[in-house]
Structures are given as structure tokens and as C-alpha cells.
Amino acid sequence: MSQFLQVLLSGLSTGAIYALAAIGFTLVWQAAQTVNFAQGEFVMLPAFFVLIGLHWLHLPLWLSLLFGLAAALLVLGVLFKKIVVEPMLPNGGMPLIIATMALSILLKEGVKQFYGAEAQPFPSLFGQTTMNWDGAIVSVQDVMNLVVALAVVAGLTFFLNRTRTGRCMQACAQNPGVAQILGVDIKRMTLYTFLINAALAALASFLISPIYLAKFSNGETLGLVAFIAAIVGGFNQIRGALAGGLLIGVLDNLTATYVTTEYRAALPLVLLIIIILWRPQGLLGVDEGRKV
């Protein structure tokens, strides 16, 4: 039982970080009706901004984290929208999707060339201590990762549902043309969406890098798993992305512990196939009518 608890909590912790990245897919889908295939690299990059703050600028950790967040907001939020999304979006969704694939390669290879191919240690935000919970040895970092990620998702959900700006962002996602006619500044709302996505990616980066280290290739697996989590949970629902992330995190850990580690990487794909066949809109997704 204690082992099960340990595995469950560890899975929830990893899953919560997947969920932060998966929510990014959902947000970008809602704002630009496209899939950001650089999302994994969006999670990889902020850790390197922090390392630049720590090792090159010799800033303390808290200031390096702020520096990393600010750089992420600028590069992954403002510049991504201005340089990639806005010029490409008028040409339709497909060119933008291809542009994000190119961006993914650019970011990955850029970090490799600029910072190095070696995995870099990343300081833990919550220390390396453990605690005994009913016989189960639980990492404080795992618990805090889960708590922070869930708190951020709860805060984001509150913001989107309980504030005027959040309501306007939803309106832009559901019917941008009408929202504009009603006086909603779509450009501003889209910018907010990309800034939130950048902040979530930065947070996911700060939480996962102490576990997997900071490496230029981290985005490959993370991006794929988060993409699958978003589809499994429901691509157009934040709560769906959360559910998908947690589900994959837990199933991954349970499979590795109780079944086999050999096929753990295949598990999200199997889950994806099952969900697409059984419920194409995802577990919590809403069926969307599309004009052709």
C-alpha cells in the first residue's frame, strides 16, 4: 500500500507538470486555432534562462527565476505572437503549424549550440527532503510540484471564469468575429493568452528541470506527452488538459512499477488510440462543430 501511495503521488506530481504544458496546447488552440508543436521546447527553454541568470549573470536563485520568467514572457509570449503567429495566421492554420515545427527545431538546436548538449543540473525549488506519510516515503518536491501546479491551474480557471478579462478571452476563443464587434480587443486578449501560456511553460520548466535536469532535448518527450495529454483530456478544455496530464502521469508510473518499464513510453500512445476511437473530443472535451 505504501509503495502504491508513493507511485501514485509521484505520478500525480509528474502528471501535474505535463498538465501545465498540455494547458498551453489548449490555450494556443483557443487563441489561434492552431497546434503549437514547439510547446515542448517552450518548457525546455526557460530553465536555460534561469541557468544564464545563475551562472552567467551570477544572480541569486530567486532573481534568476524572475529573470527566467521575464525572458520566457518576452520570447515565448510577446515575440512568438509577433514574429511567428501574427504573420503566419492570415495564411491559415497549416502554415502556422509548420512554422511551430520549425521553431521547435530552432529552439532545440539553438540551446544546444548556445549552451551545450550536456544535461545541466537545475536547483530544486523545494529541496531534496522526504517525509514519511503513513509508511510511504514521499518526496517533498513531488508534493510541492503537485500543489503548485494544481494551485496555478485553479487560479487560471478562476481567472478565466470569474473575471471580465477571462470571460473576454473565452469569448474570443468561441467566436472572435462577434467578440470584436462587441468591443472586445481581440489582439489584447490574444496577447494575454500567449503570455499565460509562456508563464505556464516557465513554471513547468522550473518544476520539472530539477527532476530531469535541463537539457536541450527535454522538449521532445515532454511536448509529445503534453500533446497526447491535451487530446486525451479534451483539446478545447483546460480541465481536460489537467485530467489528461494527471492520468498519463499516474498510468505511466503505475505501469513502470507494476507491469513493465519496457513499454512505458508506448502507454500514452495506446491511451491516445483508445480515447480517439472511443471519445474523439477527449474525456472532458466538448464536441466542436466546424465550418468547411
Partner: peptide
């Protein structure tokens, strides 16, 4: 031209909210 995943009340409120505050 409604926002399908919002209530009728929320749709109508949204139509006026950018003009106040």
C-alpha cells in the same frame, strides 16, 4: 453569432461589459 458555451445571460452581459468600469 452567440458564444455557444456561455449562458444567455452571460452572452448579453458580455455584450455590454467593455463599455463600463
Amino acid at each position: 453569432s452567440v458564444f455557444p458555451q456561455m449562458s444567455v445571460l452571460d452572452n448579453i452581459i458580455l455584450a455590454g461589459q467593455e463599455h463600463t468600469g
